[in-house]
Simulated assay, not measured.
Amino acid sequence: MMRKTFLAVLMVMALFYFVEAPRAQARNVKDIIKKVQKKYDDIKNFKASFEKIETFQLTGSQIVTSGKLFIKDGKKYRFETEDQLVISDGETVWTYNRLSNQLLIDRVRKNSGALLPRDILFKFPKTHYATLLGEDEMDGKKVYIVKLDSKEDAQGYFSSIKIWVQDDAWQIVKIEITDLNGNKSIFLLSQINTRATLSDDLFKFTATPDMDVVDMR
């Protein structure tokens, strides 16, 4: 469950970095990458609403989740859904399940195997190629579709990512991740605010006496 949550956070963090692929369409991809990077170069805070659609290859079933996500200084984040709350101040991660009233506390670990937000900044660009698949239209606006594929020697929890970049605004409005088992997660972003003023209190969590606390630090 925690890995799936980190995966959702990771999808949003994907908007901060791409890697260029040495292919025929690389020049177009390079232009898009540069414009997106320029857009987000000076972003310190990020706020958005989202809808996440998970499709499972084995059963064909779907799970739809909606919520909000806040990112500050590239490492602090807050991930809110109706059933779950995940908060990190960059050093500690609190994962609270509202249904079970259970709180998991852990350190942000470098080699835990979890898909942490910083992975998209340092690991992902080194292990994936980017290809421009084409253009589409979303909400009456042109978008570019960029696919990121794992290199042959890459290891991880997913095989590819597709990202929809809005023309002119150069913001990512949709992300699709396919994991190694063929399961897909689609992440639709809306109400994007890259100039949000976010309090540090958003990235702290205090347990109450009635919670079932599991401290793994």
Rank of each mutant, 00 (worst) to 15 (best):
A169E: 14
E54H: 05
K141T: 12
L10M: 07
N183I: 09
F122G: 08
D212N: 01
L202S: 06
I87S: 04
D215M: 11
W164E: 05
T81L: 07
N183W: 06
L198R: 08
E51G: 05
A130F: 06
K142L: 11
P209H: 00
T127V: 01
N193V: 06
L188Q: 03
V29D: 08
K184M: 11
R98T: 08
Y17M: 03
F56E: 03
N111S: 10
L121N: 04
K39H: 04
Q62Y: 02
A154R: 09
V214N: 11
F46H: 04
I145M: 05
V86Q: 09
T178G: 03
F205R: 07
D41L: 01
I87E: 07
Y157S: 13
V19C: 04
G74V: 09
Q25C: 15
Q57M: 01
R118H: 15
I87L: 11
S190D: 12
L104C: 04
N193I: 06
L180G: 08
G156V: 05
Q37R: 07
Q57D: 04
D168P: 09
I120D: 05
P117H: 09
D149A: 07
N97S: 15
F56V: 08
T194Q: 03
E152K: 10
P22E: 15
E91N: 13
E137Y: 08
Q155L: 07
Q84V: 15
N97M: 12
A48F: 01
D153W: 04
R23P: 12
I53A: 06
D42F: 08
K141H: 13
T127Q: 13
E20Q: 13
E152F: 07
D106R: 14
V9R: 11
A14Y: 03
R109L: 03
K35Q: 14
F18L: 11
V36L: 08
L104T: 12
V143S: 09
K123T: 12
V143R: 09
T5S: 14
L103R: 03
Y40A: 12
K44E: 13
F16C: 00
I32A: 09
A24K: 15
L121Q: 10
S61D: 11
T131A: 13
M1A: 15
V9P: 05
L132G: 10
Y17D: 07
K75Q: 11
L115G: 07
S49T: 08
D212L: 00
L7W: 07
S49W: 04
M13H: 14
L58E: 14
L132K: 06
D210L: 00
V12Y: 03
I120P: 01
S185T: 13
L58A: 13
I105W: 02
S199F: 01
K174S: 10
I192Q: 04
S112G: 11
D119T: 12
